[in-house]
């Protein structure tokens, strides 16, 4: 990670990279917003099954959602360890976060596979297209986050993370929490609300 211009003067006092991350997350909001809008527009518009009620498994995804939430907690701990300059804890918590993220991705892979076997495909109906696109792009975000976390853990192992470079961990944390929050929205809309849609007619408009 780049450290050279860490201590230079900024107008707002905020670090450049931190501001970059915030603005990027704002941009990413619009990205997920548009994907979610597509899902909402096509909700209940599929001409053929399988429909959400046929295949969405809320309990299972509740577990994976819980795992992802737990990973956010591990992320907070990793940042705290970085500030405390506890190298073992840094690496441990970063890997824990990555591991929990990986479990979430594992659930997603199993889920995609099950859905595929039950006949839900990208090209089968609009529900399949919107579901796989939205959750797939979220999964890609999580995967990138895992790679980032592992890379940080390697740096931590080498002793390159500590209070002076806490920003490196904090940025990853910002990203990770954002991806988490997006999942909460997706889980609410696709599973808790939309998961019981049946048939081609939209439920409740």
């Amino acid at each position: 990670m780049a450290h050279a211009i860490e201590h230079e003067y900024t107008t707002t006092g905020l670090n450049h990279r931190k501001m970059l991350m915030w603005v990027f997350l704002g941009s990413d909001c619009l990205f997920f917003g548009s994907l979610i809008a597509t899902y909402m527009v096509y909700r209940g518009q599929s001409l053929v099954g399988p429909y959400p009620v046929d295949i969405i498994n809320v309990p299972v995804t509740t577990i994976s959602t819980f795992v992802l939430l737990l990973s956010s907690f591990a992320m907070v701990q990793a940042l705290a360890a970085t500030h405390a300059d506890n190298r073992r804890a840094i690496v441990g918590w970063l890997l824990a976060t990555a591991f929990l993220g990986a479990i979430f991705i594992g659930f997603q892979i199993v889920e995609f596979n099950t859905f595929k076997n039950e006949g839900l495909t990208l090209g089968g109906n609009l529900f399949g297209a919107t579901f796989f696109t939205l959750t797939g792009f979220h999964g890609a975000h999580v995967t990138l986050g895992i790679i980032w976390l592992v890379a940080l853990a390697i740096l931590g192992k080498k002793g390159r993370l500590g209070p002076n470079t806490a920003l490196d961990v904090e940025l990853c944390g910002l990203y990770w929490h954002f991806v988490d929050i997006v999942w909460i929205v997706i889980f609410t809309l696709l599973y808790l609300i939309g998961g019981f849609d049946a048939g081609p007619a939209p439920l409740g408009g």
Binding site: G26, L30, S34
Partner: peptide
């Protein structure tokens, strides 16, 4: 720029998927 481009990005992704991966957006 940073707010508008993600919207067209989604549209373009959906178009690309329609043309190449069999979706029907």
């Amino acid at each position: 720029l940073v707010l508008a481009f993600p919207v067209i990005t989604v549209g373009l992704i959906e178009l690309t998927m329609d043309r190449n991966f069999g979706t029907h957006f």
